[in-house]
């Protein structure tokens, strides 16, 4: 195993990608706080509010997914880190940015939309689908970022 700057940068990329979890934690918390308030009025709405709360959680998973693909590709998981050049490492870092940054920001905003969705079903429980679609509108961009990161990581030759 050889330690190189490239290897470090690639690991940094994996770290950046998985930090989308910050946004997810934030977004899930925002939605969860709103859900707590609605549950105080009507505990039967636990199921639907939980579904809405879970929606901003996916960005963290997408980030982890990119982190995993990077780690797998550079051999961290097998215990043999490939000797990457610095440009290669930088490429991994760059490829991780969409998942990490878009993931973080979109998760926070999705959390806010999910929170309003929670309020919506507090008053009109039958409109849950609309609340979920509103939240999914935000998620679209996290999905696109995931795709961009995936295709980039996939395309890097080592």
């Amino acid at each position: 195993m050889e330690l190189t700057m490239g290897g470090f940068l690639a690991i940094l990329g994996a770290a950046v990608a998985s930090m989308a979890g910050i946004g997810s934690a934030w977004g899930v918390a925002i939605a969860g706080m709103a859900a707590g308030g609605v549950i105080a009025e009507d505990p039967k709405k636990f199921g639907p509010t939980l579904m809405l709360q879970a929606l901003p959680g996916t960005q963290g998973i997408y980030g982890l997914l990119i982190a995993f693909i990077i780690m797998n590709k550079i051999g961290v998981l097998g215990g043999n880190i490939a000797a990457l050049t610095t440009p290669q490492g930088l490429m991994f870092l760059a490829a991780a940015l969409p998942a990490g940054i878009t993931g973080t920001v979109s998760a926070i905003w999705q959390g806010k939309v999910a929170a309003t969705g929670v309020h919506l079903i507090g008053k009109r429980p039958e409109e849950i689908a609309k609340a979920m679609v509103y939240a999914a509108m935000v998620e679209t961009y996290a999905v696109l970022a995931l795709l961009a990161s995936f295709l980039m990581v996939n395309g890097i030759q080592i």
Binding site: I61, L65, T140, V143, L146, L147, F150
Partner: peptide, 9 residues
């Protein structure tokens, strides 16, 4: 493209 992306996830 989400058809691919979510399947990948």
């Amino acid at each position: 493209s989400r058809l691919l992306a979510l399947g990948l996830a």
